[in-house]
């Protein structure tokens, strides 16, 4: 199959970018979207042009490194999917596909389609952990946790940190990402002792990084590859109230 790719090219963080058109031939429906980009890059090399910079690593939907805004949707036209899981069979022969980087002030563009998501790391750094040192753990089964609680924690913990929630949110809010982590740890008995500080510190960092407010459009939970529910944000808010009252 043959498609036209309109791809955002931008040399560096402060350079001006633009959408450039590339006609890509010899694609098959079995190819993943990233493989189509790989293919285009090989052609660019042979034409003595610089390759398009985009990110990926595991290519099986779990590392969270890939992330492109494809035809107006984070990670492409399907719900709950990463870019690397998108295949060319989702497009028709002759389609024009627009590919843009994640857009948010807190995710500055590094080059072309690559953005800097280190803001997420810094949010995690503000308390998304349990402050127990290696070697201090009690016997695992001495902490009983009901299946219900554990499953719920796992639902929230499944976040892959890709940033699709921020990318798709009209306010560039990181509330889904932050709430998922807070709820994962705060709902487990191990996370209780630091729960209030965790909620307060992580949300404070979220604001400091320049993310916007959550206005519950619900776009994030649709684009989230792990289908993390927006209810997490409401739960985080409840935790914030509790933390504020308790402190």
């Amino acid at each position: 199959m043959k498609v036209t790719l309109r791809i955002w090219r931008q040399e560096g963080p402060i350079d001006k970018g633009e959408l450039k058109e590339y006609l890509v031939d010899d694609l098959t429906e079995d190819m993943s979207f990233l493989e189509a980009l790989d293919h285009l890059n090989e052609q660019l090399v042979l034409k003595n042009e610089k390759v398009i910079a985009y990110e990926y690593d595991c290519r099986e939907g779990i590392c969270g490194q890939c992330g492109l805004f494809i035809n107006g949707r984070a990670h492409g036209p399907h719900d709950h999917m990463t870019t690397c899981q998108l295949h060319m069979r989702s497009f028709a022969d002759g389609d024009t596909i627009t590919v843009e980087p994640w857009r948010a002030k807190a995710f500055p563009i590094v080059k072309d389609l690559i953005v800097d998501r280190s803001a997420f790391d810094r949010i995690i750094g503000q308390g998304a952990y349990i402050s127990a040192k290696t070697g201090t753990a009690p016997e695992a089964n001495s902490i009983l946790i009901s299946k219900e609680v554990s499953d719920k924690a796992m639902d929230a913990a499944a976040c892959i940190g890709c940033g699709a929630c921020v990318a798709t949110c009209k306010n560039a809010s990181a509330a889904l990402f932050t709430s998922a982590k807070i709820n994962h740890l705060n709902s487990l008995p191990q996370g209780k002792p630091e729960s209030h500080h965790r909620a307060l510190d992580m949300t404070k960092q979220m604001e400091k990084e320049g993310f916007g407010h959550c206005t519950f459009t619900g776009a994030c939970e649709v684009e989230c590859p792990e289908g993390i529910s927006i209810t997490n944000i409401a739960e985080m808010n409840a935790r914030l109230i509790r933390a504020k009252v308790m402190n």
Binding site: R6, W8, L19, F69, N71, G72, R73, P77, D79, T98, E100, R103, A104, K105, A106, T168, C169, K170, N171, A172, S173, G210, F211, G212, H213, T215, F216, T217, G218, A219, V222, E223
Partner: peptide, 28 residues
């Protein structure tokens, strides 16, 4: 204030944005 800050949080808009596929027009 919130709207102003939200706009600041997303200074660059997408060339193509299919928000209607993931959220209601009202919420947007």
């Amino acid at each position: 204030i919130v709207t102003y800050q939200n706009r600041n949080a997303k200074p660059d808009r997408y060339a193509v944005n299919n928000a209607k596929e993931n959220s209601s027009w009202t919420s947007q």
